[in-house]
């Protein structure tokens, strides 16, 4: 099986992704100056997750990988969620 013809991502697309990442960084700094109570941390995490999604999909080529890679990534994120979630079952209801 030849894998020499994998997708080559264009400079232009990388530049667009980078611009989006800078914009999202600006938004997260801007939002942080407002007091939204507990919502602040969730907004920060949502923006960070969005930025991560862009980095993983384009810079790390996950968008162009075989399903095996995507399944492995999702499995890891589920394990991480269980790790965090189960810790908080204890922490929150102690």
């Amino acid at each position: 099986m030849s894998e020499q013809h994998e997708h080559i991502v264009s400079y232009k697309l990388f530049a667009i992704v980078w611009s989006a990442l800078l914009l999202l960084t600006g938004i997260t700094i801007w939002v942080a100056q407002y007091n939204l109570g507990a919502l602040n941390i969730w907004v920060a995490l949502a923006i960070a997750s969005l930025k991560s999604g862009l980095v993983v999909s384009f810079f790390m080529h996950m968008k162009y990988e075989q399903p095996l890679f995507k399944i492995a990534l999702i499995s890891t994120l589920v394990i991480l969620a269980i790790f965090i979630g189960f810790t908080f079952f204890d922490v929150l209801y102690r």
């Binding site: 960084t25 997260t28 700094i29 942080a32 100056q33 407002y34 007091n35 939204l36 109570g37 602040n40 941390i41 920060a44 995490l45 923006i47 960070a48 930025k51 991560s52 980095v55 993983v56 810079f59």
Partner: peptide, 17 residues
């Protein structure tokens, strides 16, 4: 390395409220 920093930055530097 970049991904980890994407989470470190808001959690440590932008926790103002």
């Amino acid at each position: 390395v970049d991904l980890i920093w994407i989470f470190i930055f808001p959690l440590y530097y932008l926790i103002l409220h």
